[in-house]
Lab assay of single mutants.
Amino acid sequence: MTYRVRIENADGEVVTIEISADELREKGLTLEELLPPNARIVEVEEVEP
């Protein structure tokens, strides 16, 4: 499974990243732990691999 994640950074700019569930598991991280300081998740969407 892959996630498309929209993130708002500290400057108010919204960027989109895609990350797979396998990648998260391998790194032992959650989506929140990948965020840079002062950023927030705006939207998470599951996409087909």
Rank of each mutant, 00 (worst) to 15 (best):
E46H: 10
V47N: 04
V15C: 12
V14I: 14
A10D: 12
Y3W: 12
I19S: 00
N38L: 06
N9A: 09
I7L: 09
E45C: 15
L24Q: 02
P37M: 07
N9P: 03
E32F: 09
A21E: 11
P36D: 06
V5D: 00
L29F: 07
V47I: 15
T16F: 08
E8K: 06
V44W: 09
A21T: 08
P49Q: 13
E33K: 06
V14A: 06
V14T: 10
E43M: 11
R25I: 13
E33P: 00
A21S: 11
T16R: 04
E46A: 09
V15N: 08
E46V: 15
I41P: 02
L35D: 00
V14W: 04
E26K: 09
N38V: 02
V15M: 13
D22K: 12
M1T: 13
L31T: 00
A10L: 12
V15L: 13
R40A: 05
R40M: 09
T2S: 12
E32L: 10
V15A: 08
V15S: 14
V15Y: 15
E33W: 04
R6N: 03
V14P: 04
P37T: 07
M1H: 09
L34F: 15
I19A: 02
N38H: 11
L35T: 04
L31F: 07
L24K: 01
L34R: 03
E26I: 11
P36M: 04
P49N: 13
Y3D: 00
M1R: 12
V44Y: 07
T16C: 06
E8M: 12
R40S: 10
E43R: 06
R4S: 03
L29C: 11
R4A: 03
D11H: 09
I7S: 01
E8D: 03
R4C: 02
R25F: 10
G12T: 01
N38Q: 06
N9K: 15
A39R: 04
L29I: 12
R25L: 11
G28A: 05
E32V: 10
P49D: 13
E23R: 04
V44Q: 02
R4W: 04
S20K: 10
R25W: 10
E43Q: 11
E48N: 14
G28N: 12
P36F: 03
P49A: 14
E43N: 10
E18Y: 15
E23V: 08
D22A: 13
E13W: 09
E45Q: 12
L24W: 04
I7V: 09
V14F: 13
E8I: 13
V5Q: 00
L34D: 01
K27E: 04
N38D: 14
V5W: 01
E46C: 07
V14G: 05
V47T: 05
P49F: 14
P36G: 13
V14D: 04
K27P: 02
V14S: 08
N9R: 14
A10W: 13
L24P: 01
T2A: 10
N38W: 09
V42I: 15
P37K: 08
T30D: 04
V47S: 05
L31S: 00
L34S: 07
V44S: 02
G28Q: 08
P37Q: 08
V47D: 03
E43W: 15
E8P: 00
E43C: 12
E26S: 10
E46R: 13
P49S: 14
M1F: 12
G28P: 02
Y3V: 04
D11Y: 10
E18I: 14
G28R: 06
E46Y: 14
R4P: 00
L29M: 13
L31V: 06
Y3F: 10
I19D: 00
E23H: 08
L34N: 02
D11G: 09
E43G: 11
I41Q: 02
E26L: 13
Y3G: 00
I41R: 02
M1C: 06
T2P: 01
E26W: 10
E32H: 08
R6H: 14
S20L: 07
I41L: 07
E26Q: 13
T30M: 06
R4N: 03
E8W: 07
L31G: 00
E18R: 06
I41W: 05
S20V: 04
T30W: 03
I19H: 01
T30C: 05
E45P: 01
K27G: 08
R4T: 02
T30V: 05
V44P: 01
E43K: 10
P49T: 13
P37Y: 08
E13G: 11
P37C: 05
R25H: 11
L35K: 02
E26N: 13
E45L: 14
T16Q: 08
E33I: 05
L31N: 00
K27D: 03
G28I: 03
R6I: 13
K27R: 07
L35M: 07
D11A: 10
E46F: 14
G12F: 04
I41V: 11
I7D: 00
E32G: 07
S20A: 10
V44K: 02
I19F: 11
E45V: 13
E32K: 10
I41Y: 03
E23N: 05
D11F: 10
T2Q: 08
E23I: 09
E46N: 06
I17Y: 10
P37W: 08
E43Y: 12
V15T: 13
E46M: 15
P37I: 07
A21G: 09
L29T: 07
V15K: 08
L31W: 06
A21M: 09
M1K: 14
P36K: 02
P37N: 07
D11Q: 11
K27F: 06
N38A: 05
E48C: 05
K27W: 06
V47K: 04
T30R: 09
L29K: 12
N9T: 15
T2D: 05
P36W: 05
I17R: 02
L24H: 01
T30I: 05
R4E: 01
E18G: 02
L34A: 13
N9M: 15
E26R: 11
S20T: 11
T16Y: 07
G12M: 04
V42S: 02
E33N: 07
E33C: 03
E8V: 11
P37H: 10
T30L: 06
R6C: 04
R40G: 04
N9G: 10
A39M: 10
V44T: 03
V5I: 12
Y3A: 00
L24D: 00
E8S: 06
R40W: 15
N38G: 15
L34T: 04
V15G: 06
M1G: 07
R25A: 10
L24A: 02
L31I: 12
N9E: 06
R6E: 04
P49K: 10
I7E: 00
E18K: 05
G28Y: 04
A10Q: 12
E26T: 09
A21P: 04
I17M: 10
I41C: 04
E48L: 15
T2N: 10
A21D: 08
R4Q: 03
V47Q: 05
E45T: 14
E32N: 09
E33A: 08
E26M: 09
I17P: 00
R4I: 09
V42H: 03
P37A: 11
E43A: 12
E48R: 15
